[in-house]
Simulated assay, not measured.
Amino acid sequence: MHEITLGRVSETRAAADSVRYRERLRVPWWWWLPGFALAGIIAFEVNLGIQSIPMWIPFVVLGLVAAAALTWLGRVDVRVVSGTAPHGETELWVGAAHLPVGVIARSAEVPKSAKSAALGRQLDPAAFVVHRAWVGPMILIVLDDPDDPTPYWLISCRRPDRVLAALNA
Rank of each mutant, 00 (worst) to 15 (best):
G83V: 10
D148A: 04
V103R: 07
V103Y: 13
I141M: 01
P86Q: 11
P125I: 07
Q51F: 01
V129C: 05
A68E: 12
M55T: 12
V61M: 11
D161F: 05
D124A: 06
K112T: 14
P137T: 04
L123D: 11
R158Q: 12
R106V: 00
G120N: 08
I155K: 00
G136I: 06
D147G: 14
L143G: 04
D145V: 02
A105S: 15
G88L: 03
H131P: 01
I104K: 03
Q122R: 13
D144I: 01
R79M: 14
L73V: 06
H131R: 01
P111Y: 07
E89H: 09
P86I: 09
W72A: 12
R75H: 12
D77F: 08
L62C: 04
V110G: 06
R159Y: 06
R162H: 13
K112D: 11
A67D: 10
V76T: 13
V80T: 04
T150H: 03
A97S: 14
R79H: 11
I57M: 15
R106F: 02
R158F: 00
A117G: 11
G49M: 08
Q51M: 02
L73E: 13
A69C: 12
R75Q: 13
A68Y: 10
S107F: 09
I104H: 03
G83N: 12
D124V: 00
A165F: 02
A105N: 06
A133E: 15
A97F: 06
A96D: 15
T71P: 00
R106H: 15
K112C: 00
P86A: 13
P58D: 09
F128S: 05
G102P: 09
V103F: 12
W153H: 01
A67P: 02
L99Q: 02
W153A: 08
R162K: 09
L70M: 13
P149E: 07
A97L: 06
G136F: 05
A105Y: 13
P160T: 01
I139W: 15
E89A: 05
D145F: 01
W153Q: 04
T71S: 13
L123Q: 10
V81G: 09
I104Y: 00
I155D: 08
T71F: 15
F59S: 12
L167R: 00
E89I: 03
A108L: 06
Q122K: 15
L70C: 03
I57C: 08
T84R: 14
V101I: 15
G120W: 05
I141F: 05
F59Q: 07
T150V: 11
G95K: 07
L154I: 00
A67M: 15
D161Y: 02
A66S: 09
P86E: 10
G74N: 02
S52G: 14
D77M: 14
D124F: 01
W134T: 00
A66T: 03
R75Y: 12
V135G: 08
N168V: 05
V61G: 03
P58W: 03
W72G: 15
L48Q: 14
G49E: 05
E89G: 04
L143Q: 02
R162I: 03
I139S: 11
P100W: 09
E89M: 09
P58A: 11
E89L: 01
R106S: 12
L73Q: 14
C157P: 03
R132M: 03
V94Y: 06
V129F: 08
G136R: 04
S113V: 09
A133P: 08
A97P: 06
V60L: 11
